[in-house]
Amino acid sequence: AAGAQAPDPLTAAVAAGLRQGRSVGEVARAVGLGARQLHRRSLAAFGYGPKTLARILRLQRALALVRTGTAYADAAYAVGCTDQAHLAREVRELTGTTLGGYLAGIGHGAEDARSGTAQPSGDGR
Rank of each mutant, 00 (worst) to 15 (best):
A1V: 10
A6L: 13
L10E: 12
T11R: 12
A12V: 07
A13K: 14
A13F: 09
V14E: 01
L18G: 04
R19T: 11
R19F: 03
R22F: 07
V24M: 02
G25A: 09
G25F: 06
E26N: 07
V27C: 03
V27K: 01
A28T: 00
A28P: 00
R29N: 13
L33A: 00
A35I: 14
H39Q: 15
R40H: 15
R41T: 06
R41Q: 15
S42Q: 02
S42N: 01
A44F: 04
A44L: 13
Y48G: 10
Y48M: 10
P50V: 05
T52C: 09
R55P: 03
R58C: 07
L59T: 00
Q60T: 04
Q60W: 01
R61T: 01
L63Q: 04
V66I: 14
V66P: 03
V66D: 01
A71P: 11
A71H: 15
A75W: 02
A75N: 09
Y77T: 07
V79G: 02
T82K: 14
Q84N: 15
A85S: 15
L87F: 04
R89I: 07
R89P: 00
V91K: 00
V91N: 01
R92D: 06
E93P: 01
T97V: 13
T98R: 12
G100E: 02
A104T: 10
G105I: 12
H108S: 12
E111A: 08
D112S: 12
R114L: 04
S115H: 07
S115A: 09
G116R: 13
T117E: 14
T117I: 14
Q119K: 13
S121K: 02
G122K: 07
